[in-house]
Design a protein around this nucleic acid. Structure first.
Lengths: 195, 195
DNA sequence: CTCGGATGTCTAGCGGTGCTAGATTTTGCG
DNA sequence: CGCAAAATCTAGCACCGCTAGACATCCGAG
C-alpha cells in the first residue's frame, strides 16, 4: 500500500520532471534541440524510460502544451487593467507578452500541429480556462455581438500578431500602433481621431 | 556559347522541377513526407543533384514559399468584389480560401520559420506584391488611420484565423460570423445590428 | 535470511533523416 | 578516337524516433 503510493508518487514526479526538462530545453534551444536522446540525458535516464511515461515524443510536447495553457490562463487572470486602461487591452498585452517571452512554449501550444482534441470532445480544462479569460476580457465591449465568435476574432488577431511578429514578418516599429488599431476596431467606441 | 545556354536553360528547368515537385509532394502528403530521398526519386535524380541546386532542404522550402507569395498576390489581385460586397471582404475571403485550399503551401509561406529576410533588406518582390494587394483592399476603409499598420492588423487577423482554423482550434460553426465580425470591426461603418 | 518472480531500467539496434566525399559516368572538343 | 571537364551517382556519416530483449533491482513468501 504505502510502497505502492511511494512508487506512484516517484513516478508522478519523474513524469513532471520530463515535462519540465522538455519545456526548459525547448525554451533554451528551440524544439529542434529536444530529441529523445538529449531529453533522456537531461533527466538522467535512458530513452526507454521516456516511453514508459509517454507514448512518444509528440505526447511529451502535448503535455508541455497543455500545461502551457494553464500558465497562459493564470497570466491572463492576473492581468488586471491599470487605471484608465481597458480590460481588453490588459488581456491583449498580457497575451502578447506571454507569446513573446515564451516563444517555444507558445509554439507547442498553438503553432505546432498536434492531435490535442481542440474540438468539442475532451478539450483540456487548461485551454477552456485560458479561453474563458479571453471571453471575460471581451465581454465589456461585446455590445450586441456574438460573444464567443467575437472572442475567437480577438484571439485570432492576437495569435496572428504573435506568430507574425515572432517570425519577423511584421515591422517592430508598428507594434504599438498595431495594437491600438486592433483594440480600437474591436471596441464599440467610435474610432476617435488623433491616434 | 549555345551549349552554355542550353545547359543553363536545362538547369533552370530542373531547378523549377524540384520546386514544383516539393510543393506537389507537400500538398499531397504534408511537409513531413518531403524528404530529400523522396524528392530526389520524384524528380528522377539522386540526392546530391538537389544540393547542386539548393544549399539544403530549407532552401527548397524557402523557394516554394517565395513562389507561393507570388501565387497569393495573383489570387488577391484577381479577387474583385461582387456587387454589394466590399473590397475588404473580397480580399479576406480570397486570402482565407487560399490558406484553406493550399494548407501546405501556406504553411511554408507563413508558419514554418525560415530565414527569409522579411525585414527591411531584400524582401522578396512576391511578398511585397501580396502585401500591396492587402494594402489596396484596406485603403477604402482606412479613414484617418495609419494605412500600413492597419493592413498589418488585417493581415494578422486573417493569418490568425487561417492557422487556428487549420489546426482545428476554432469552431467551424462560427466561420461566417467570425469573418463578419472582423470585417465589421475593421470597417469604419458603425456596427449595425442584426448580425 | 534466502530465494524467486515481478518490476524497473538499460544496452543495442532498426529503419529513417539531412547531407557529403569520392568514385564513376557522360559530355563535348581537339 | 582520346581525353579533360563536367555532371551524376554510390556509399556512407551522424543523427533522429522508437523498441526488443538483456540485465538489474526490489519485495514478499517460506
Amino acid at each position: 500500500m504505502s510502497i505502492q503510493n511511494r512508487r506512484e508518487r516517484e513516478r508522478a514526479e519523474r513524469h513532471q520532471l520530463i515535462i519540465d526538462a522538455a519545456r526548459d530545453l525547448a525554451e533554451a534551444e528551440g524544439w529542434d534541440a529536444v530529441t529523445t536522446r538529449r531529453l533522456a540525458e537531461k533527466v538522467e535516464y535512458s530513452q526507454p524510460v521516456l516511453y514508459s511515461h509517454f507514448k512518444g515524443k509528440d505526447a511529451i510536447v502535448r503535455a508541455v502544451a497543455i500545461q502551457g495553457c494553464g500558465d497562459l490562463a493564470r497570466v491572463l487572470r492576473k492581468a488586471r487593467p491599470s487605471r484608465g486602461e481597458s480590460r481588453l487591452r490588459a488581456a491583449a498585452e498580457a497575451y502578447l507578452r506571454f507569446a513573446r517571452e515564451r516563444p517555444a512554449l507558445y509554439d507547442a501550444m498553438f503553432v505546432q500541429q498536434s492531435d490535442i482534441p481542440w474540438g468539442t470532445e475532451e478539450v483540456p480544462q487548461e485551454l477552456l480556462d485560458a479561453f474563458g479569460e479571453l471571453v471575460a476580457a471581451v465581454e465589456p465591449v461585446r455590445g450586441e455581438r456574438h460573444l464567443e465568435a467575437l472572442t475567437e476574432v480577438f484571439w485570432s488577431s492576437l495569435h496572428g500578431i504573435a506568430t507574425l511578429v515572432q517570425g519577423g514578418r511584421l515591422r517592430p516599429a508598428y507594434d504599438d500602433t498595431r495594437l491600438d488599431l486592433l483594440l480600437g476596431a474591436l471596441s464599440l467606441a467610435q474610432h476617435e481621431d488623433g491616434l
